[in-house]
């Protein structure tokens, strides 16, 4: 049965995050004037990496259950966790753990035991800084992703198939990415085909659409394109989405439209829920 490989150090899970860094990402989220899209996405990605490190950290060391890569696309295409593209985009999580750019102190609200929420300082490691400049070379970034994933699959042919999470707020400025994305869909480990999930940040405060199963209701051809670029959620992730309360039709895709900041966090969370099968 595909998409059932255990996640072990011998068969780590690959997670590749593609982040739109075009100029428009410097604008705030629709209906949330105090948060730039680029900052919200960077926070969510840093938090995701932090969670992956915490899942893998043992008293005896950080176990390489995951290999993670980030590629930003905007004025340039750049590996977000250091290194160069495409050779060392994917980094073992133990290496990532010890090399944040810096550790910030932020505050989080916690219950003080009397039912009151009080701010408490927390350490917030930052690997990836927000950038917003230039256009949206989405076809280009998927071409790089293809190279990166081929390399990962060659080294880990038995792993759970790598997951690509693409977060954007606009349309590709270079070329139609669909033919390249279809080649990416065709890449596979022994456990199944590469998964490509997409999220489109809203330009207007309209309710988000999570994991649609049917493109016929979309009037916008770009939304249809993103639908076709998105893989069906495998059972493990569909179950994760359902247990979070999303109603999924048969064949639901890993796609979120009209995303706000909360949807970005939930997309990254559900899209990486392959991580619950660690052994």
């Amino acid at each position: 049965m595909p998409y059932s490989a255990e996640i072990t150090r011998a068969n780590p899970a690959g997670i590749l995050i593609l982040i739109d860094q075009s100029g428009s990402m410097g604008q705030p989220f629709a209906g949330q004037a105090d948060k730039r899209k680029a900052d919200g996405v960077a926070d969510a990605v840093n938090r995701l990496i932090q969670n992956l490190v915490l899942k893998s950290a043992k008293a005896t060391g950080v176990r390489d259950y995951f290999h993670v890569g980030v590629i930003g696309y905007g004025a340039e295409l750049a590996a977000g966790l250091g290194g160069s593209i495409p050779d060392d985009v994917m980094q073992p999580i133990s290496k990532v753990a010890d090399k944040p750019l810096r550790i910030e102190t932020r505050s989080k609200l916690v219950d003080n035991g009397k039912g009151e929420l009080v701010p408490q300082p927390i350490r917030f490691p930052v690997w990836f800084d927000a950038t917003a400049a230039g256009k949206t070379p989405m076809a280009g970034v998927f071409e790089v992703a293809e190279q990166v994933l081929k390399r990962f699959i060659k080294s880990h042919p038995g792993s759970f198939p790598p997951t690509v999470l693409n977060l954007t707020d606009g349309r590709p400025s270079d070329a139609n990415p669909l033919p390249i994305v279809e080649r990416v869909h065709d890449l596979a480990t022994a456990d199944g085909n590469v998964l490509v999930f997409n999220l489109l940040i809203s330009t207007e405060p309209t309710p988000p659409v999570f994991f649609p199963a049917d493109e016929s209701k979309f009037e916008d051809t770009y939304q249809k394109l993103l639908f076709r670029m998105s893989s069906e959620l495998p059972p493990k992730l569909a179950d994760a989405a359902k247990s979070d309360g999303y109603k999924l039709g048969a064949g639901a895709r890993g796609l979120v439209l009209n995303a706000d900041l909360t949807s970005v966090v939930r997309f990254l969370d559900i899209g990486t829920r392959v991580t619950t099968g660690m052994r």
Partner: peptide, 17 residues
């Protein structure tokens, strides 16, 4: 308890969990 010496950011958080 585990080792009390200076811990990495993840060791500190993980130990608290």
């Amino acid at each position: 308890n585990g080792q009390p010496e200076a811990l990495s950011w993840y060791a500190e958080e993980k130990q608290a969990q």
